[in-house]
Design a protein around this nucleic acid. Structure first.
Length: 422
RNA sequence: GUGAGUAUGGCGAAGUGGUUAACGCACCGGAUUGUGGCUCCGGCAUUCGUGGGUUCGAUUCCCACUACUCACCCCA
C-alpha cells in the first residue's frame, strides 16, 4: 500500500506530460479566442452544494462522492464536476453585477468514487465553461461550436455532436408523467434496469440495449421532442438553425439524457466512434436560483481530458518525443567539475538546454548517455582542456570535433540555432 | 454495485508438483590510452502479488485478500 497509488488515480509524468501540456495550451488559447475568463474554484466544497446543484437522485450524489468531515465537523466533498463550484462562485462573488453575460472556463481535477475502467478514473480531469446570464439560443450554438472547436484544435477528428432538448419545468414533468402512465402497466415487460429507470429517469429507457425500446415503440411512448412546449420547441429550432449556419455538424438524438438534474432545454454530447462520449453539456436555467442566486439562465459543457488524450492517441499514435538536448557536458576528470558547471550555467542562462552526468561514470559511458539523450553537442572537459583553456566539442551527428574556447560554447550554440554548420 | 480475465526481475514474456526460474529489451561493466550509435563478451529474480491450506516438497493445486484490466451500470 505504501508504494501504491490509490485505486483509480494516475501518476502523470514522463512522455505523457508533453501531451497534457499541449492539450492545456489548446484549451487556454481556444477560450481566449472566444473571450472567456479562467476561474479557479476550490477542489472541495460544502457537500450541500453538490447535493443541491447536481441533484439528490443522481448517481453522482447517491454513490460517487468523496465526502468527509473536516476537523470542524463540516461535511465537505471533493468536487465531482465543475459547474456547481463555478455557479457558487458566480453567486458568492456577485459576478452577475457585471454587465453582460459572464463567460467563465475552468480546468482541473474532479473526483468520483467509481470503478475504474478505460477512460474512467476516480481522480480525472475536466476542462469546461459556463455562460451565465443569457438565454439566447445564439449562446447555445456558440458554446456547442466552441466545444467542437477546442477538440478539433487538439487534432481530434470524426467527432459527432448529438443534440437534444430535455424541455423545461413547464413541459418536462408533463412528458415524464405521460411516459410513466404509458409504461407503468407494462413494467413487467421491461428489463430490471429499466424498471428502476421508470421511476428514476424514464427517458433513459429509450437508450436501453436490451429490447425495452421495442416495448416503447409498441406502446407509442411519447418522444420528448413531441412533448416540448412552444418556447422550448422554438429555442431548439433556433439553436439548430445557428449550428447549421456555423456549419457545425450535429445529429438529433431524442433519447439523449444528461445525467445531472439541473439541465433544461439544450443538451448535447460530443462523441467519437472509437471511444464514446468525450464531452457534453447543456443549459441549466434553474441552477443559479437553486443554489440561492438571482434567477439566471446558464449553459456550459465539460470535456474529459483523459478521454481527449486517449482519443488523440488512438487517432495519431503516441505523442512525439520531447525536444533534444542542446549540450551535454562530459566531465573527463574530476578536476574539471567547476569549469563544467560554469559552462552548463552559462549555456542554460542563454536559453539552451544542457545537462551532465551525476553518477561519476567514465567518459565512454557519458558519451553513450549523451547519445541516448539526443544531445546535439557534447563538450568534453578534462585535464587537457583545462590546460588549454578550451573544451573539446563534438557534433554527435557527424562525429566531428574541435576545440572551442570555454566561453565560446554559447556562441557556437547560437550560430547552430541560426542554421550554421559546426 | 454486477460480471469476466490477469498477477513471474526496470519493461515485455516463457515455464514446471521436486537440485542452479528460459529468452528478448533496458540497464551496468569490458573488448587499446579520455570518446556514442554496430558487433562481441560478461553481469543483473535465494525468487515467481499478499496471507493461509493441500503435499515429503509448490512459482506451479485449492481458498481468501489485494491490485490491475475489460465490460455492464453511469458518465467525462
Amino acid at each position: 500500500m505504501l508504494t501504491q497509488r490509490p485505486r483509480g488515480t494516475a501518476d502523470i509524468y514522463g512522455s505523457a506530460i508533453a501531451a497534457w501540456r499541449a492539450l492545456e495550451e489548446v484549451v487556454h488559447a481556444t477560450f481566449r479566442a472566444y473571450h472567456y475568463e479562467e476561474i479557479r474554484t476550490p477542489v472541495f466544497e460544502h457537500t450541500e452544494l453538490f447535493e443541491r446543484g447536481v441533484g439528490e437522485t443522481t448517481d453522482i450524489v447517491e454513490k460517487e462522492m468523496y465526502t468527509f468531515l473536516d476537523r470542524g465537523e463540516r461535511s465537505l466533498t471533493l468536487r465531482p464536476e465543475g459547474t456547481a463550484g463555478v455557479v457558487r462562485a458566480y453567486v458568492e462573488n456577485k459576478l452577475y453585477a457585471a454587465p453582460g453575460a459572464a463567460k467563465l472556463y475552468y480546468i482541473g481535477p474532479m473526483f468520483r468514487y467509481e470503478k475504474p475502467q478505460k477512460g474512467r478514473e476516480r481522480q480525472f480531469h475536466q476542462f469546461g465553461c459556463e455562460v451565465l446570464g443569457s438565454d439566447d439560443p445564439a449562446v447555445d450554438a456558440e458554446v456547442i461550436a466552441l466545444n467542437v472547436d477546442v477538440l478539433n484544435r487538439f487534432g481530434l477528428a470524426g467527432l459527432t455532436v448529438e443534440l437534444n432538448s430535455v424541455g423545461c419545468p413547464v413541459c418536462r414533468p408533463e412528458h415524464r408523467a405521460r411516459m410513466v402512465a404509458v409504461l407503468k402497466p407494462a413494467a413487467h415487460r421491461l428489463c430490471p434496469d429499466c424498471q428502476r429507470r421508470l421511476d428514476r429517469n424514464p427517458l433513459r429507457i429509450f437508450d436501453c440495449k436490451r429490447g425495452c425500446r421495442e416495448v416503447l415503440a409498441e406502446l407509442h411512448a411519447p418522444s420528448i421532442l413531441d412533448a416540448l412546449c412552444p418556447d422550448c420547441r422554438q429555442h431548439l429550432a433556433a439553436v439548430e438553425a445557428l449550428l447549421t449556419a456555423l456549419a457545425v455538424p450535429y445529429v438529433r438524438n431524442p433519447h439523449l439524457v444528461r445525467g445531472l438534474d439541473y439541465y433544461t432545454r439544450t443538451a448535447w454530447e460530443v462523441t467519437a466512434p472509437e471511444l464514446g462520449t468525450v464531452g457534453g453539456g447543456g443549459r441549466y436555467n434553474g441552477l443559479v436560483a437553486e443554489v440561492g442566486g438571482p434567477d439566471t439562465p446558464g449553459i456550459g459543457f465539460a470535456v474529459g481530458m483523459e478521454r481527449a488524450l486517449l482519443l488523440r492517441e488512438l487517432q495519431h499514435g503516441p505523442w512525439p518525443a520531447e525536444p533534444r538536448l542542446d549540450l551535454f557536458v562530459a566531465v573527463a576528470d574530476p578536476s574539471a567539475t567547476a569549469a563544467a558547471m560554469q559552462m552548463l550555467q552559462a549555456v542554460r542562462q542563454a536559453g539552451f538546454t544542457a545537462d551532465r552526468d551525476y553518477q561519476g561514470r567514465g567518459l565512454k559511458a557519458q558519451l553513450k548517455q549523451a547519445d541516448r539523450l539526443g544531445a546535439r553537442l557534447v563538450a568534453i572537459l578534462g585535464g587537457d582542456e583545462l590546460a588549454r583553456g578550451a573544451a573539446t566539442v563534438k557534433d554527435m551527428a557527424s562525429g566531428e570535433q574541435r576545440d572551442v574556447p570555454m566561453d565560446g560554447v554559447v556562441d557556437l550554440l547560437r550560430r547552430l540555432a541560426d542554421g550554421a554548420q559546426i
